[in-house]
Amino acid sequence: MSTPAQLLQADRRRFPGLLPRETLVLRAWLKLHEAEYERLQYNVRVGEGQDPGPQYPSDIRAMAVLNTQKRIDAVAYQPGAATIIEVKDRAGPSVIGQLLVYASLFPLAHPEFPRPGLLIVCNRAVPDILPAVRAAGIEIEQVDVDYSLLLS
């Protein structure tokens, strides 16, 4: 039996921030929506990360900072606009917090986009999050996904 890492090797490297089921969710969404955007970036690091301190060698310290930065699943660009995308198999309450944090961090690195759009791409969502999603100005798009590949 192959592992998900083997089955989805190319996609795993293209979308490093995603787990196997999320990878299939994003693939399904891209089939429907990729052409609507000028370009997409994946695994976009934002924030400062966590510096473990001067007791560590500088290379280890730099890698630790890089490895603990927040990673945005995808950013989709249209002329003059950026949309931060968080991908979930099943979207729950935590996705709202993630997107709100990213919305604050992303403009620090990209001041040309002071108010990025926020989008949840998922297969399913916990219904009770929807009022909070709307109140936060977050869009949500649910896609049908064939997960059978992961059964091989």
Partner: peptide, 10 residues
């Protein structure tokens, strides 16, 4: 949950 890809050596 965090994906290990790009963090743990491939």
């Amino acid at each position: 949950m965090i994906s290990p890809t790009g963090i743990i050596p491939d």
